[in-house]
């Protein structure tokens, strides 16, 4: 069975990518399962989707924890534990990263035994935006069981609602990636089932009763959400040019939906990059246009994004 996991940020098209691959494998004669998985987070936050494909009917369900292929739309997610990109990866897992850092660099940084392929963003793709279509083309090639015509048919089925020009652009991007990785045709091998002999037993416990004061789902501490680094959602960052900032009455801070811009007694605004989601409301509202937009550094695995 093929077990493929797609990682991206909400809005980057990984759910659609998983569906195109699901349809392509279905058209290629496989039994298929595909599904997205969302958390509480919204646009910009990490999400994942998965596809299973087998020649026989599929009994497995739910999250894939032993993937054969992990495709990542945005390589900044690799360093983010909450994104779970590295979950269950072993030496047989192929990792496909959309980004500019070379595969060998990732292998070294992450100490990975399995192959890592990178897919450079297309020239026409805006900085910070992943191309779901390129990921789709690359995944089809790495699987080696989806031919060009099947890939084209699957894209048409899933994206028909977008209109002809969008469909053509996506097909073109997917086929370009498909061709770029021609040398890696069939690099992904199907994984087997979890064996029932000599398996690792679950570490079940006798769950004890806790006092209700502890066992109630209530939070007794203030503002604990600040421990959540929503700054990791950002693909671009606002940067204040303090030479141009006229120390106004903190418009940027008032309008920032996240409470992520603080203004001290000197009326100098400071952006909290741990939490700024990169919505750029501050950029549009700054009366002196003192806030610039810069792309986040791509592929910094050590969490150097803030």
């Amino acid at each position: 069975m093929y077990r493929i996991r797609f990682h991206g940020r909400g809005g980057q098209g990984m759910k659609t990518a998983s569906r195109i691959i699901g349809t392509a494998l279905f058209l290629a004669g496989y039994e298929v399962q595909d599904a997205p998985r969302y958390g509480a987070e919204r646009r910009g936050a990490p999400i994942f989707a998965y596809v299973r494909a087998d020649r026989r009917s599929i009994n497995e369900r739910g999250v894939i924890d032993r993937p054969d292929l992990v495709a990542v739309a945005d390589d900044s997610l690799v360093a983010l534990p909450a994104a779970g990109v590295r979950q269950g990866i072993d030496s047989h897992t192929v990792l496909l990263l959309h980004g500019r850092t070379p595969g060998a660099a990732w292998q070294e940084r992450l100490n990975l035994a399995g192959p890592v392929f990178t897919l450079a963003p297309a020239a026409h793709v805006e900085a910070g935006h992943a191309s779901a279509a390129r990921v789709v083309g690359a995944v089809a090639r790495l699987l080696g069981v989806v031919d060009r015509d099947t890939l084209i048919a699957a894209i048409r089925r899933e994206l028909a609602g977008l209109g002809d020009s969008e469909l053509a652009a996506n097909t073109r991007d997917a086929l370009a990636a498909y061709d770029e990785l021609a040398d890696q045709h069939g690099a992904v091998a199907e994984g087997g089932a979890v064996v029932s002999r000599d398996f690792l037993p679950p570490r079940w416990i006798e769950l004890g009763l806790d006092v209700a004061a502890l066992a109630a789902p209530a939070i007794h501490a203030p503002a604990t959400s600040t421990a959540v680094q929503t700054g990791l959602w950002r693909t671009v960052r606002p940067v204040i040019d303090h030479a141009r900032c006229n120390r106004c009455w903190w418009l940027c801070s008032t309008f920032c939906p996240e409470s992520a811009i603080a203004v001290g007694g000197d009326r100098v605004p400071v952006i909290d990059y741990d939490h700024c989601k990169g919505c750029l409301v501050c950029v549009t509202q700054c009366p002196t246009h003192a806030i610039d937009v810069e792309p986040e550094e791509e592929g910094t695995p050590e969490g150097g994004r803030s």
Binding site: G39, A40, E41, R42, R43, G44, A45, P222, A223, T224, S225, T226, A227, V228, Q229, T230, W233, P257, E258, S259, A260, D272, D274, H275, K277, G278, C279, L280, V281
Partner: peptide
């Protein structure tokens, strides 16, 4: 209000 909520950017 503490930052770090799961609301969409620009909410």
């Amino acid at each position: 209000l503490g930052a770090g909520t799961p609301m969409c950017g620009g909410c």
